[in-house]
């Protein structure tokens, strides 16, 4: 069983003469615990792929399956719930709420999902501590460096214990040192916490942290390269490890 599978996934923006085919029949399978980078020239469809996999947008044709379940068959409410519980998103701009502390920002998805504030804050502290921010829990975004803000955003993405983390240029707004640290953290999230990570980047140094790179060009996959198997386990092992952590 794969965690992500796309079948003939196609996205066309617009219609008629101005139509743009952003993705053209993408077939891709990702196993649990993989750390996959998506690379390719600007406009080749990287963000579109991430949005479709995350259910933020609908394909024109073809489908996305998460854990063998097609997103196309889901009602809006079910899709929203699945997105909140199964998928974490991280973007280039951290999108934190300025007036909230690190803990409050991180706990927000849990509170929106109906969890009691005290429980949500506890769980937020666990993930912030894992992100190395145990001593920054009450800081507001403007009191944190760019790298630290992105760590808060990652903690927020993981706080609901999703199996899949989608990251679109997560280091695009950071200097090279902070970028390397975030990439190493994403690697740890895959290797130690057994989340599946799908990350878009145009930076070779960042992509080199992943175990696999999918190269897109003009909306199609032109190459799919395994970099190494270190930190990658059999699917059964990953699922067991995740069950223990939950």
């Amino acid at each position: 069983m794969s965690i992500v599978k796309t079948e003939q996934l196609t996205k066309v923006y617009g219609q008629g003469a101005t139509a743009v085919t952003a993705l053209n029949r993408i077939n891709m399978t990702i196993q649990p615990g993989e750390f996959v980078a998506v690379m390719g020239p600007s406009g080749c469809g990287k963000s579109t792929l991430l949005h479709l996999v995350g259910g933020l947008d609908q394909p024109t044709s073809g489908q996305v399956l998460l854990d063998d379940r097609s997103l196309s068959g889901l009602k809006d409410d079910d899709l929203t719930t699945l997105r909140r519980r199964q998928i974490g998103f991280v973007f280039q701009f951290f999108n934190l709420i300025p007036v909230l502390t690190a803990v409050e920002n991180t706990a927000l998805p849990l509170i929106l999902d109906g969890m009691k504030q005290a429980d949500a804050h506890n769980q937020a502290e666990v993930w912030l501590t894992r992100m190395g921010l145990g001593d920054r829990l009450s800081h507001r975004p403007d009191e944190l460096s760019g790298g630290q803000q992105q760590r808060v955003a990652i903690a927020r993405a993981l706080v609901a214990e999703p199996t899949l983390l989608l990251a679109d240029e997560p280091t695009g707004n950071l200097d090279s040192r902070a970028a390397d640290e975030i990439a190493a953290l994403l690697r740890q999230i895959s290797h130690e916490w057994h989340r599946t990570v799908l990350m878009v980047t145009h930076d070779p140094r960042i992509a080199a942290h992943a175990n696999r790179i999918v190269f897109l060009k003009d909306g199609t996959i032109v190459d799919d390269t395994r970099l190494s198997d270190d930190g990658q386990y059999e699917e059964r092992v990953v699922r067991e490890k995740m069950a223990v952590m939950a």
Binding site: A184, P204, R205, A207, A208, H209, A210, N211, I213, F215, V222, D223, T225, L227, S228, D230
Partner: peptide, 20 residues
Amino acid sequence: IYTQRAGLYRELHALTAQRS
């Protein structure tokens, strides 16, 4: 070119891991 690129990325991955 793709084969060469894949080789370079594997090398880069190994060095990145070593550096860490």
